[in-house]
Structure formats: structure tokens, C-alpha cells
Design a protein around this nucleic acid. Sequence first.
DNA 1: TTTATCCATTCGGTATTGCCGAACACCGTT
DNA 2: AACGGTGTTCGGCAATACCGAATGGATAAA
Lengths: 266, 266
Amino acid sequence: MLKADPSATQVVSVARALELVELVVHGPDEGLSLAEIARTTNRSKSAILATLRTLVDFGYVRSIEPGPKYLPGMTLIRFGDLTAVKDPLGAIARPILTELSGESGLTIRVARNVGGFPVFIERVDGPGVVRFHTPLGARELPHVSSAGKAILAELSDSEIREVARECGLVSRTKKSITTVSELMAEIEKVRHDGFAIDDEEDVQGIYCIGAAIFDHFGKCIGAISATGVRRDLTPAQVNRLGKLVMKYADQVTDQLHGRKSVRGGK
Amino acid sequence: MLKADPSATQVVSVARALELVELVVHGPDEGLSLAEIARTTNRSKSAILATLRTLVDFGYVRSIEPGPKYLPGMTLIRFGDLTAVKDPLGAIARPILTELSGESGLTIRVARNVGGFPVFIERVDGPGVVRFHTPLGARELPHVSSAGKAILAELSDSEIREVARECGLVSRTKKSITTVSELMAEIEKVRHDGFAIDDEEDVQGIYCIGAAIFDHFGKCIGAISATGVRRDLTPAQVNRLGKLVMKYADQVTDQLHGRKSVRGGK
DNA sequence: TTTATCCATTCGGTATTGCCGAACACCGTT
DNA sequence: AACGGTGTTCGGCAATACCGAATGGATAAA
């Protein structure tokens, strides 16, 4: 299945430039100076300066005087937004996420199924004061996220084992699932309930509830998930919220002219 | 003020790579093929392939089989989100935008003041069914947007003329302001009211209402704007909405420990 | 004041490397 | 079977990205 060596970067200078972007994006809020960047990358200041100038030209990086210090640029916001808007799943899901967020008061996200891993592409924050990091665009761990479990539940058991092997079932909190047998039991529960739960398995104090989304082939193309703080949650609400999230996930599936899969269960 | 020639790109191969990203981002939803990209850029397929491989490695572009076709990648979403989240203005504004969106039912955005031009960095969609393009990260026209007018109103008259000269006061609809004298009269009204209106001046059928945000120096660092469809708007609502948007803008200013400027009016 | 140390920036020279074009394999259609 | 259209590989040349030294400025220490 794997075609060629995946990490065979071809254009070295472009790769180095993109590493700079990564550095700046993850850098401190005040920005990075040229010397700092040159030092951490072990490259000459002149080379870094030339690359930064190009990145600034294209808006990937912006420089602020005096200093100058370098910060992430507006083009990143622009292209990120364009990418999310162009995605048909995101376009369909957005108003539905807004509605679910309003009804539940929680932060709602929609993830795309990328090889069994959830990648969140869109988010609608709830009206609450509490905020937490719910990043977009990153490949999340499938076994400690509700969206991940919802997606896994639609795979065959052998595929689940493959994904589990790939991510290593690393532990994130005391409650994280770390063995295949535990995972299989959990998935069986998800298949029965129709929705998945992450009960502080990724981040302490945070829970998520997720449900799968399907295309017109009945293939699971992603999931919706709702995120909240654990202390606000009573056991009675779990089932209510689960049904609610499932209802809205089904709405997305409908809008995509999709249909829920009759699970093969190979 | 302008330091050096702005469009002096330094690293050609990086620039070419970023042009590729731009091409893919603005490309069709089904994606672009290698041959198509090579044709439209007048470059060899081999060079394009090498660059695309690098971009795919870093997630700026993703390739889907069969074809393969090339589409915008998840890293764009990830970095765009990170950039917006890191921005202190965006971080402060987000929950307030959510609240205002809930109270008004409109789409709310917050823009940063970039040299007199508004650049929107964050958006919260309203619960309505109607959707429209409210892009993020792009430098918008100041004279046909409410956020732009709200920002302009905090500049000196000579600075406004400078910005007007820079953007050329291009017309977008029949109602667009196209002369400096019209603009000055409009700005004077904004200064009196405390909020700005875009009444179908940018897009037919769409109106916006905006109000400025200040830092602790009293400098205008951006603006909030609410967007809706014109037909839903009664004249009585304009004033009510204006006051509402202004109230929430002031909340953002407060959270930033800012204070409204005593306008110099040079 | 002088000295020192950091910084960003400019500029040539060198060798790294990105690019082209030809050739290939692989479909579909004609 | 021959064609036009893909995506892909590879070798060789020239473009060019890189480094390092040198400059000027800014700030801090002596």
C-alpha cells in the first residue's frame, strides 16, 4: 500500500523554509529574532534572512519593528480558513455545529477520518467562559478521543488493530486505554451505543462525546465531537448528550446524502 | 516609512513553492493534477513533482489517489488556527464574539488594524441558515467595510487620505464610496455615532456594523464587525445594533486593559 | 567618553542543488 | 495496435542558495 518512502523530501531549500514557518508558528508570542532562528537551526544568518524575506513577502511570516521580530503571518490564517471553507464536510457541518453548540453549550468540532485517525477541520466554541485548547488540523490520537473511537468503531477489527499498532496506544492520562483488548471492548460498547466517550482519557478534567459521519457509500468519513469540562457532567447527562450528538451527526450525514453503514464487522 | 523594495523576493525556489500552495488553495474542489499545475505555471513536471512532494511531506498540500490530485493540506488549517489562537486580540475577543453572535444572531468578526486596513483574524458564525463568504486573514478594503471605517475614524485626516490613496477607493457596488470628500463626511458621521456602517457598499444585499478596539495607549488596534443580510434590517435596528456592537467592542477594549482614544483629529 | 557585545544587514565566491528534458511505464481511447 | 494523455525516474548542467567575512548601528558595560 505504501508507495514509496514517505519522508523523502525532494526540494531541500523549500523544506528548510517550511521548517522556519514551523519554528515561528510554535515560537513565543513576542516573536523570534533573526539571530535566535539562526542559532536554533544551525544555519547562517544570511540564509535565514533571505528565506524570511520571502516568507514575509508571501505573508506566511510577518516582521514587527523594532527588532525586527518574526511572527506567524496573516496568510496562514487566510489559507487555513480557505482550506476549511472549501472542505465539503466542513461547509456542510458548520451550521449544524453552531446549532449543536447553542443547544448543548459545548465546544463542537468536526473531524475528518484520515486513515483511521481523526483530523479536526472545524470548530465552534460554546458560549461558556471556560476555554481549552481544541486544536484544528492536527492528527489526533484515535484511542483517547471520542471522535477517534467513533471512527474506529466503523472499521473492521483487523483495521482497528492496524491503527492501534500505528499509534502505539500511548497513554495520556491515568484513564487512557493502553491495551488492544481494552480498546476492543470499548469499541464494542461504541458500536452498541452509537456514540463514543472520552472520559478524561486525553486531558484530565475534560470529556468528549463523539458520533460518526458517513458518505453515500456508507463509509465513515469523519465524526462530530462535543467537548466540555468533566465536573459539569452528571452520569445522567452522558446518555442524553450522546443521543444529541448522534442526532446532529446524522443530520450532517443526511446533508451529505450519506447513509449509515450496515457494519460488516469482519 | 517604506524601508526597502517590498517585492524583493530572495529565495526563488521557496517563492515558486509558495506560488504552488496559492495555486492549490485557490484551485477547484476536486483538486489539481500535476500536469495542470505544470501547464499553468510554465514549469517542468519534474520540478513541480519534487516541490509538491515536499509540500505534501509538510502537509501544506495533500494528494488524493487516484490521479493523484492535489488539494490544500491540513497543516494550513493547523497553522491558521494556531496563528489565530496565539494572537492576543483573537484570544481575548473570541468569547465576546460568541456572545455577541448569540445575542444578535449575526456573523461576528474581529479585525486587526494593519496600516489602516482591516485584516480579520477570527470569526463566529451566527445561528442563521444564511451563509456568506466572510474571509479571514485577507486585507480588506477600508472604505467599503464597517470595520475599515471604524478604524479610519481613529486616524488623523491626513492619514485617512494616505490610506485612501493607497487603496484607490475602488468601487465594489453602486453604493460604494469612491471620493475622498464622501469618505470624509462618512468618517465624520462614524466619529459622531461611535460605530460604522457598510450598507451594501462591499457586497449587494449584505450590511455590516463595526466598532473600534483600543489598546492601553488609546491606539486603535482593530475593530469588531457584525454582518447580516440587508433585507432582515429595519432602520430602527441600525441604531440598536450599532450600540450593541459598540458595547461589545468596548468589552474587548476593557479586557485588553485598553482605553478609548481622545481623538486628536489633527 | 571608550570599549565591548550584541544585533541586522550587505556582498562575493563557491559548490550545492534545483531544474529541465528525455525517456519510461501506465492507463484510457481511437 | 497506435495514439494522446497521465505520473514517474534519472542524469547533467547551470542557476542559485548557502556560508562567512565585513559593515553599521544600537545598547550595555567600564
